[in-house]
Design a protein around this nucleic acid. Structure first.
Lengths: 215, 215
DNA sequence: TAGATTGTTAATCGATTAACAATC
DNA sequence: TAGATTGTTAATCGATTAACAATC
């Protein structure tokens, strides 16, 4: 099976496998069976074997999986060691919080520019990168060719901004705004983090739970 | 069909419907058909009718759906007007960013306490709520009975913290840490926001996309 | 070899889509 | 009434789980 055939539901589970295997590795655990991993992660052994098999059998019958090997393999699939050039738009609290995730070693991304419309914070250094005024975004992109943009500003004026970024060579977005980039630019890769949607879902579940408790 | 029978995949779509209908309402649009809504949202008309029908038919044959009515109905299902008493643990950049989401009118939650282990920021006011030292958490919960906790601190020491919060009457978590609360406390409601997982998924997709472009 | 555990196919389950009768 | 569009059932599609032969 080709790498490109891994279904999106499997891909969404890879980061959790990766993190979990990292913990096992740190604790010096070298081998694990699908059964034990399933118990620890709250999945079925069947699903784990099915998932791992999507990208080539790395287990050994009668033994299980080699933890460091599997961990490295998943990291490779996730391209954790790449350094995709990335710009951050918006240096408020959310932007600052998010910048530390991008700047983590092995994030797969390299933060090369930060932009904000607030002139008062221009020149401030965040994770080694100076904040520039948003007016410098266009020239910066022409000079440095980032391919990923992280959006940490409100949805107003997002149409102009994303149109500009797409023209300037951005191909993927980590989007924290409610603006629907994927609808406006179907050719772009967009990973959305909709905090308000997540909170609304929790609201629904919390209240449903209460109702059920009463019965 | 009972409210409790709405499947999780439908629930996850409700906030987006809600936001979309809000925009339509703001623009003075009163009626919309499943067909048009589908085109605008990038879904199928069939799915929209199926989804809306889960919580009772609110459309009218030959007419479509009444926007303000549907918007209000979904808000009601999401319990957007509730005021679930909530404490925030961690007042760093992420905590501050997240506190503004909780404090939004119609979030369904009410921020009543903020806690941090950094004594230097004790007494600072965020969205009208003072930051307290984490040592005061226990007594605060005994006095004020919050039922939801928002976790914006690293995963270390999370076991002790979540054990404490569960003992103190917390029943739902908005979890930004990598600690697996749901595995440790299966009886809790947990909505996870795993930023690193989201970024890793984007890393995979970005690199897969590049490979395909070359071919 | 015997026991353990994978890889892989088939069966099941659930979610999405298609179709169309009901009805505004 | 005729046209439009829903509500709802059936068909399809895809993801998860079960089963077991392969094999370490």
């Amino acid at each position: 099976m080709e790498k490109n055939d891994i279904s999106i539901s499997v891909i969404k589970r890879l980061p959790r496998y990766y993190r979990f295997l990292e913990t096992l590795k740190t604790n010096g655990i070298v081998r694990i069976s699908s059964k034990e991993l399933a118990e620890r992660m709250g999945l079925t052994a069947s699903q784990i074997r099915h998932d791992f098999n999507c990208f080539g059998g790395f287990g050994q019958q009668g033994y299980g999986y080699n933890v460091p090997e599997l961990h490295a393999k998943i990291g490779e699939i996730l391209c954790i060691n790449n350094q995709v050039k990335t710009v951050l738009i918006g240096a408020g609290n959310l932007g600052k919080a998010v910048s530390s995730k991008i700047s983590t070693r092995d994030s797969g991304f390299k933060l090369i520019g930060i932009f904000d419309k607030n002139e008062a914070i221009s020149g401030k250094i965040i994770h080694g990168v100076p904040v520039r005024h948003i007016d410098y975004l266009e020239n910066f992109c022409i000079d440095n060719s980032p391919t990923c943009a992280v959006i940490c500003i409100p949805s107003n004026d997002m149409k102009e901004l994303t149109d500009l970024l797409c023209r300037l060579g951005i191909t993927s977005f980590w989007n924290f705004s409610n603006y629907d980039i994927a609808m406006a630019h179907p050719e772009m890769l967009v990973e959305n983090v909709h905090l308000t949607d997540s909170l609304m879902t929790l609201s629904y579940l919390t209240n449903e739970y209460k109702e059920n408790s009463i019965d």
